[in-house]
């Protein structure tokens, strides 16, 4: 093999190596452009608003990443979020003295239960995740409407302590962001430094081998959907606290943003690979877009189309890059 051959790796193989740096670069360039068009973009208020929004998105994206790594998908998280947010909100309205931490715990538990049910359907009965989560989405959404009886829980009903979850700060950092950071760190440690965490990747990478290696695939699947549910429940409380309202149709369709954040962050839909750092960057990019589009006078009705376009382009780029990497392996063969 000549020297020239060895250096001529395909451009997409290079992209694969620098994916996160590229994403970061793109975020910076985008921010600069938006800032030029509308100087109110990089103001303290706007940034803090953007970051807190992104915090919720990224918490969900971390959970979704685990689900996608196992070759699954969860479309029910928007409904889970709404259900736990609604119940938590109603509980604090009924008991204004309730400590906010307990409200968070309550929401998380409800989400956890939702996730456990879904995980049980997927793991125990082998129902396709898309079908199971589509069905449960309806169930959870219907339950939310029934629990709320079609009514809203509005800002003035909620006790100040509850609303303060989103506005207060811990060690000088906004609580929402603090919670998100804690979740990043814990998840990072979990998926990289614990046995169970690595088993999630093993199951996604090759389910058959995982079984032979003595991994209980069902338990892992059940676990990731439960984690996803728990995180959705947590996000539900945070969401309701931040927007100070709980409705039947809270976060409808939000699962799509979360999936978009994952694929933008390089999580492979085929399973087995995905990084926390990528998912965080993906969430930030999406958060900036959502925030910036109205600022540069893009009609809110365009947002959905743009978001869909981003998902599609991101998965197509992932696919093309993957092909390039494979082709690169082929070119290295000495034929």
């Amino acid at each position: 093999m000549t020297q020239k051959d060895r250096n001529s790796s395909t451009w997409s193989a290079k992209i694969a190596r620098f994916r996160e740096a590229g994403l970061l670069g793109f975020i910076l360039v985008l921010s600069v452009i938006v800032q030029f068009r509308n100087p109110s973009f990089l103001t303290i208020e706007n940034i803090s608003d953007m970051v807190t929004n992104t915090a919720i998105l990224s918490i969900l994206a971390v959970g979704m990443m685990l689900v996608i790594v196992t070759r699954g998908i969860d479309l029910s998280i928007g409904a889970t979020l709404a259900l736990s947010g609604m119940i938590a909100a109603q509980t604090v309205v009924a008991n204004p003295e309730l400590h906010p931490v307990l409200a968070i715990l309550l929401g998380t538990c409800i989400g956890l239960i939702c996730g456990m049910v879904l995980g049980w359907l997927v793991a125990r009965f082998g129902i396709l995740p898309i079908i199971a989560s589509l069905g449960m989405m309806n169930v959870f959404r219907g339950l939310t409407f029934m629990v709320s009886d079609g009514k809203w829980v509005s800002a003035h009903q909620m006790p100040a302590s509850f609303k303060a979850i989103a506005t207060s700060s811990l060690l000088g950092i906004n609580t929402l962001i603090m919670i998100a950071i804690i979740i990043y760190v814990v998840s990072y440690y979990f998926i990289n430094h614990t046995r169970t965490g690595r088993q999630i990747y093993a199951v996604g990478s090759n389910p058959d081998s995982a079984q032979i290696s003595g991994i209980n695939n069902g338990r892992i699947l059940w676990l990731v959907y439960s984690i996803m549910g728990g995180l959705s429940g947590l996000s539900g409380v945070l969401w309701v606290s931040k927007f100070a309202s709980a409705q039947g149709d809270t976060a409808m369709g939000y699962e799509l943003s979360v999936i978009a954040a994952c694929v933008l962050g390089g999580v492979s839909i085929a399973g087995g690979s995905g990084k926390i750092s990528g998912v965080i960057l993906g969430s930030i990019l999406l958060g900036i877009l959502n925030n910036a589009l109205p600022l540069i006078n893009v009609s809110p009705f365009w947002q959905m189309g743009i978001q869909g376009g981003i998902i599609l382009i991101a998965v197509l780029i992932n696919a093309v890059v993957k092909r390039g990497v494979d082709r690169n392996h082929l070119m290295r063969r000495n034929v």
Partner: peptide, 14 residues
């Protein structure tokens, strides 16, 4: 029967 997305070390110690 390996895990193509994981490292050699992980495959050995899985």
């Amino acid at each position: 029967t390996c895990f193509p997305d994981l490292s050699v070390t992980e495959n050995i110690f899985m």
